[in-house]
Amino acid sequence: MAEIVISEFITPEALALLEQHHSVHYDSTLWERDDDLAAVLRDARALIVRNKTQVGGGLIGAAARLEAVGRLGVGLDNIDVATCERRGIKVLPAHGANAAAVAEYVIGAALILLRGAFGATPRLTAGEWPREQLIGRQLEGKQLGLLGFGAIGQATAARARVFGMEIAAYDPGIPHDAPRWQTEARRMTFEELLETSDVLSLHLPLNEETRGALGGAALARMKPSAVLINTARGGIVDERALAAALRDGRLAGVALDVFETEPIDGGTGALFAGLENVLLTPHIAGVTEESNARVSDVTARNVLEVLASPDITA
Rank of each mutant, 00 (worst) to 15 (best):
T299P: 04
G136W: 13
R159M: 15
V55A: 09
A151R: 13
P179N: 08
L47N: 08
T183K: 07
W31E: 10
T183I: 09
T261Q: 14
Q54W: 02
E195Q: 15
E305Q: 11
R45G: 06
V102G: 05
N207E: 14
V303K: 03
A243V: 12
V55L: 04
A120G: 11
R221I: 04
R65M: 00
F9Y: 15
N78M: 11
I10Y: 10
G116L: 08
A39K: 15
G215W: 01
M222C: 07
E13I: 04
M165P: 09
G150Q: 03
G266S: 13
T281P: 03
L251F: 03
V237M: 04
I6C: 08
T156D: 05
D265S: 11
T299E: 10
L242W: 04
E209F: 05
I167G: 09
H25R: 15
G235V: 03
R221D: 04
T53R: 05
A293V: 07
G215D: 13
G116F: 07
H176L: 09
L113D: 00
Q154C: 09
A157G: 11
L134H: 09
M1I: 12
R45H: 12
F118H: 14
V303Y: 01
M1Y: 13
L256M: 15
I152P: 01
L275A: 05
G216W: 00
A14E: 01
R137N: 08
A314K: 05
G286P: 03
M222R: 09
G73S: 08
